[in-house]
Design a protein around this nucleic acid. Sequence first.
RNA 1: UGCCUCGUGGUGUAAUUGGCAACACGUCUGACUCUGGAUCAGAAGAGUCCAGGUUCGAGCCCUGGCGAGGCAGCCA
Length: 565
Amino acid sequence: MNNTEETRSLHFIEEIIEEDLKSGKHSGKILTRFPPEPNGYLHIGHAKSICLNFGLAQKYNGRCNLRFDDTNPLTEETEYVDSIRKDIQWLGFDWEDREFYASDYFGQLYEWAILLIKKGLAYVDDHSAEEVAESRGTPTRPGKESPFRNRSVEENLDLFIRMNKGEFPDGTKVLRAKIDMASPNMHMRDPVMYRIKHAVHHRTGNKWCIYPMYDYAHGQSDFIEGITHSICTLEFEVHRPLYDWFLDNIIDDPLVNFSRTRQYEFARLNLNYTVMSKRMLLKLVKENYVNGWDDPRMPTISGLRRRGYTPESIRDFADRVGVAKRENVIDMSLLEFCIREDLNKKAQRILTVINPLKVIIENYPEGQTEELEAVNNPEDEIMGTRHVPFSRTIYIERDDFMEDPPKKYFRLSPGNEVRLRYAYFIKCNKVIKNANGDITELRCSYDPQSKGGKSPDGRKVKGTIHWVSVQHAIETEIRLYDRLFLKEDPAEAGVNQTFIDNLNPDSLQIVKGYTEPCASEARPFDKFQFERLGYFCVDPDSDSGKLVFNRTVTLRDSWAKISSR
RNA sequence: UGCCUCGUGGUGUAAUUGGCAACACGUCUGACUCUGGAUCAGAAGAGUCCAGGUUCGAGCCCUGGCGAGGCAGCCA
């Protein structure tokens, strides 16, 4: 109860919860839920919602349920259920034994539908989908009542029961709530409660021929579980009157009604240079614009995991973006900041060259090798040190040499001494080129007195560059990623174009890298900082013969800023 | 020309019962440094969508505009 954590101002949902707690509305027990539909993989936007719902439960000593919203058998699959469970766990949240499915409640929902029919509040409509749409009107024009709206309770009961028995083909009948066809809120114009679908459901098989709609299922599912605060995104704001209408008409006990579940809406997360809609993500996967849901360029949780993001960094990000009702677009740089900050503290440093230029140190004895001591993580002393082999022929980064450097360039150039990290000072004596004039090799000399990178005479070198001994280096595959889309808002496409036209053709670049031998023991998802280059993560595509690294994010690069000016 | 929600630095989020607009990311300086990383110090950048009104005093209250997003699936 002492620091910033406690003094930080509350967001609007926390305020509501604290008021409810104070008034004793829920007897001190907060119950939230995360309700994904298992029809796709979770993305960073879901992560915001997961962190919100589970985080609120943690903060207020409550619980958070996982509930799969599986009311549409046509699009839902167990593959998605499995991926969702894995992603939530990986993020660090635990729903314990409270894994529920809307389909668990199909029986109860059916009973309540019967109740509403008996109350004269629901009816079977024989209209086709087109006719229903037609008679619903538009936002600015009221709808018209269906000719089937005033069927008797008996007839509705009979028809509804037979709908479920499978006596009618798909699309021939629906059960509708009888509310108000002239309501200014479209969702109150006799919304569909049940539709006929002779389809196999991933959990209930072919037990049911009818399936409830989201609006009819969601609030009642919340009620059944005893959810206190049902948090969803802004587009459901206009559904709230309907959410309340169903419960108002199902529950008689005013005491229960007083403390029952309420829906609150917050603004979903948007990130620039990427897309978050399931439809678009599905298209990227199905049409092979990316390599699966867990492609490291995807904003999916599985993609971010494979890219090298940590659960901690994502939770931190979710924390920093805040919770409000205003439409927002978060800068990708914030996400990158969060992963850098986390990995800076944790990642083992190693030297890796990804764009090699061969350097021969002419005055270093041929055939000689030595082991130099290197720090594993300057931010964390207990990570210790390691030995890095050095020899006469090394690779340095091609960018770390310029024959004709600009003013503030303080890496290697003719006549300019630099330090090889943890090794020696070297100077460039000769530049060797091929017939095209491309630099193919450098001849350098080293100062034996500068072993370990220290200058015996106190002379300073401005630049320190990384390197790797050619004969000891491990060759690896390195996947360099850039933003998936060229535009901040990929959905903003020109005429006859779609978001696909905004894909960045250079979002993936595969190169060879040469890394220190100590990396040979690395396992998939191990994370490293390649000094001066960025954070990299071992890809599961790696096998015993070949290491594959994904670049998670580059280091902050102030030279890039200077040189681009 | 309906209904709902929302307008605060480039971005996001704050601002007790009205009282000098704050924090973070980003940007820019400088210091330090065996990573042009990290760290440290500092700066620029909004007068709160607009116009009225109430008030000693308005980002907060009132009125009227304007703008943005959502809603017309038998999707969620």
